[in-house]
Design a binder for these strands. Structure first.
Lengths: 191, 191, 191, 191
DNA sequence: TATGAATGAGTATTCATTCAT
DNA sequence: GATGAATGAATACTCATTCAT
């Protein structure tokens, strides 16, 4: 066998794409992504057949990373509030640690180059979590709007929280708490 | 008065840009926008010197329209909750009436072609409103996070609400109410 | 109206393509064709949407020119031999006058970028002529092989004649005669 | 003997090139040829330093195969007509048996990547045959045009015959006969 | 020697912008 | 001012060739 297709290089390209797309949007040239990754222009295409494929893979990669972050240390035995608080903290924390990722994801979400299939697959990773939220909310004030709505609300509130943390990193803890409290009041079954 | 005719064209171009960018993102060709507006490719550039200028103007146009919608019929004498409820309803209602505008704005928000200056100017239109929210919140649970945070939270929660309405137009009223109730619980000074 | 799409430019591009493709085959870069035509790279694509379209149009253009050459001065009242001799002379003469065209046509004929539709359309221009050949041959020794075969034979024999003339222009007359005599002996109904 | 194995691969590559180039022209990627040959992309270049070399070798290979086919069973003691008939039959027969080869040769003939040297070498293989034709024709009606012209005429008429057989395989025998008869009438010294 | 990943020059095509009409 | 053809830089992707394994 000749040089094996290196997983390192694949990850380097995805990481570069995360950065560059976070900065410039999905219109960023593949050449720039390749350079940032330290590979030749053509090499990018041995790992991703087309730019669209790269974009879709990156979307899944980011969503997957986010999910992993949220499930790590998940307090299965905690109260509803504790479990939700964990998810919130992990989500926001991931955004703080991956500022590029957060911005890249924001770009990809509104791009028409991400297929419905990819979106579905990306969301599937969170199905489990949504089920949890569903139970959380079953008896709460938003029971009629449905768990998808609550999940989306949580996502967008967390995104907003991330943005504020990105601008004022020192106040990270404060925004994280304030954001969660707001969310919890909004959905608290005991509210 | 050559001016009147010109203004028509300017608005036609902006309207076309709203549609096209809502559908295809900021990468959409100016030629397509021109065609949709019913003018020649070159004409677009007599109204907007560059594509970036068009994009920035569109951003301001949309933000301005949104502001107008929110201030129309504003119940100056109402309670805090009533006034906030009005803003919420107007915001969400605007998104429902201007589906292209909502999507276009989502694209422009994440585009690096919108200058900081434009963003500032766009937000300025809401300064007045933020002041109102500030007062709303002054004694509420989010008083430490600041009015900007609460304003952003309101925006993102309303955006989420809009998206759900776009997918299930029949449930517009239900989502509008549920969304607002959630928001109000999150920020209610009396909560 | 702005600048009208100029027929001159269209012809310049086709003429350039004829030359360049005659020299380098269908793999020749469109950029080179554009430069040879004295227009910008992009301009080529305002006249021909794709390279394939240019290639197919060129094929039809060349076939059409060839047909016109053959029908000019056609001796409707001549004997079978005279009429056939006219066609032969015109065909070979066209090749001598359009050396680029001849070579370009040779390339296009073997290219898989020329569609079956284009080939059919190109041949249709010669249908009339084939009918004539059909009558010529009806009672000749090749009656069983069919007029298409005889027409193709005439074409390939004339092509060969052209090639020899291209290499030895001084002997043009001699090769033209020798070639025709050979062809006529091959198909002469009185032979 | 590592040689034997290598020779197999060399032939496999040439055979694959024959097919692929016959189908897609000289623009076909070397990668595709390699895959069709069942070897790695890089391996192709241990047998042929460049694509041009492969193309030129293939040209010679095809020409050589054609010559061998024509000389096999050559009736040295036959009449002029019999000998010429044998050549014709062998040529056309080769084309029928090697449809890829025929098409590949057609592509290579018009390619500017085949050097003059290669062309000369390829023709040299037929020198002997041309000498024969020379004698055949010495007293015939085409004596002034020269044996090269007659040889070329024979080639192009046979090519045309092949094409018709390719389209109507059932009529192979008929076309072969008709083609030869036409050619013979064209050159028959006794005509 | 065989492999196939890596390379980067090369290619068709797009598109913001200019400018002749 | 309006038009749309003209421009050429920019872009995604290809492919002959090299080279580490």
């Amino acid at each position: 066998m000749a040089r094996a297709k290196s997983e390192d290089k694949r990850r380097a390209i995805l990481a570069a794409a995360e950065e560059v797309i976070g900065e410039q949007g999905t219109g960023a040239p593949t050449a720039r992504i390749a350079r940032r990754a330290g590979v030749a222009e053509g090499t990018l295409f041995t790992y991703f057949a087309t730019k669209d494929e790269l974009l879709n893979q990156l979307y899944l990669e980011l969503k997957g990373g986010l999910r992993d972050a949220m499930m790590t240390g998940y307090p299965h035995a905690g109260t509803l509030r504790e479990r939700t608080r964990h998810l919130w903290g992990a989500y926001v924390g991931w955004g703080v640690v991956h500022p590029h990722g957060g911005r890249a994801l924001a770009q990809l979400k509104v791009s028409d180059r991400i297929t419905d299939e990819t979106r579905a697959e990306g969301s599937a990773a969170f199905a489990e979590m949504e089920a949890l939220i569903a139970r959380t909310v079953a008896d709460g004030p938003l029971r009629d709007a449905g768990p998808a709505f609550v999940g989306a609300l949580m996502g967008s509130m967390a995104d907003t929280t991330m943005e504020f943390i990105a601008r004022q990193p020192d106040a990270a803890r404060r925004f994280t708490e304030a954001g969660f409290d707001a969310f919890w009041r909004a959905v608290d079954p005991a509210g």
